[in-house]
Amino acid sequence: MSKEPRHYTGDKDIQVIIGTLLRTGVYTSLGIVLLGGIIFMVSHARQPVDYSIFRAQGPRLASIGGILRGVLTLDGMAVIQFGILLLIFTPIARVVFSIFSFLIERDYLYVAIGLLILTIIGISMNGGFTH
């Protein structure tokens, strides 16, 4: 191992693409959240709410399949949840994109690190720990 510090500067193009990806992801998903919020308000504005006791959401709003089915019927709650799902996937998409850019740079160490991060998120998504 060399004793001289080595410096690495990122590729300008990749930084611009990652920046654009993050920004587009955040605004698109929050646009959908807003749209779902309006649909939800129109149909539920005067209903009473009580969030003082935690009752877990049913699979209708807690699983990807349930949310997608709800979006097809234009259910406001499901549209909001779909926007939130897109928001959650925005930074994950950034990791996927970084893996490809490191692959182009032939930096296989960081390809492996990116894949490791995706694996960790994948395990938590499958709920292996949660039940």
Binding site: Q57, A62, M77, I84, I88, T90, P91, I120, I121, T130
Partner: peptide, 16 residues
């Protein structure tokens, strides 16, 4: 995002 997927799955993310 890593913890949000766990929370979503557990029904802790209420759209309202």
């Amino acid at each position: 995002a890593a913890s949000a997927v766990v929370y979503l799955h557990r029904g802790q993310i209420d759209p309202g």
